[in-house]
């Protein structure tokens, strides 16, 4: 602390010596210099305000653009998510009293494998359903088998089993209330839906 104080005192002494020298010259430019500096300061101030305003405007514009861009990309992403979600929800179907994956459904499941690999946060639930022909109570076990059959397929293709939940509805929730083979074949199904991590889904 002492050293800066000494320097200040030394400066004051020097100024006093100059003033006492009787030289009037420095007296007149001083106000001018002051006026200029004031104007300059004022101008600088104005400039800086303008600059700040411009910067703010630019920033706002940039933010607006960024927001728009985000919104656009989110919308695009949403459209993508919806498409992926639809793909993921594609049902698979079963033969009467069977729980084995039909060969024509393997492609559907492979697509789900791809989606689940591309979206490692996504967790899904598989619900097994049966048609009305089988026994009421046995269908609960059969629906359970159908759900786990699809899960096993996904797990055997590299998906972490912890991401897949299974449940059975037996024949309690038919899609088609009809009493014919067309309705029954629709009702013997696995349904897939996303339980978490499905806000933004990437295409596989």
């Amino acid at each position: 602390m002492t050293r800066p104080l000494l320097l200040v005192l030394a400066g004051l002494v020097t100024a006093g010596v100059v003033a006492c020298g009787g030289n009037p010259q420095p007296a007149t430019p001083a106000p001018q210099a002051n006026a200029d500096s004031i104007a300059a300061a004022e101008k600088a101030r104005q400039d800086s305000i303008a600059a700040a305003e411009a910067a703010a405007r630019a920033r706002e514009e940039a933010e607006r653009v960024a927001r728009q861009r985000t919104a656009d990309s989110l919308a695009a992403l949403g459209r993508g998510t919806e498409a992926v979600r639809t793909m993921l929800a594609t049902m698979i179907h079963f033969d009467f009293d069977k729980s084995n994956i039909r060969s024509d459904d393997a492609g559907t499941l492979d697509q789900k494998v791809g989606i689940l690999q591309a979206n490692s946060n996504a967790h899904i639930r598989i619900a097994g359903h049966c048609d009305e022909r089988g026994s009421d109570e046995y269908n609960l076990a059969l629906g359970n088998r159908r759900a786990t059959a699809a899960k096993q397929y996904l797990v055997s293709h590299g998906i972490d089993g912890g991401r897949i939940e299974t449940q059975s509805f037996g024949k309690e929730r038919p899609l088609d209330p009809g009493h014919n083979e067309e309705a029954w074949s629709k009702n013997r199904r696995d349904e897939f839906d996303i339980t978490s991590g499905g806000d933004a889904l990437r295409q596989p």
């Binding site: 109570e137 609960l140 076990a141 359970n144 088998r145 786990t148 449940q167």
Partner: peptide, 24 residues
């Protein structure tokens, strides 16, 4: 998923089916 409950004849137990991923 627990289903098809049945009382044991002595009334002390409830026997039923349980479906889990490993099977029922």
């Amino acid at each position: 998923l627990d289903f098809t409950p049945v009382f044991s004849p002595d009334g002390k137990g409830l026997t039923f089916s349980r479906a889990i991923e490993e099977g029922t």
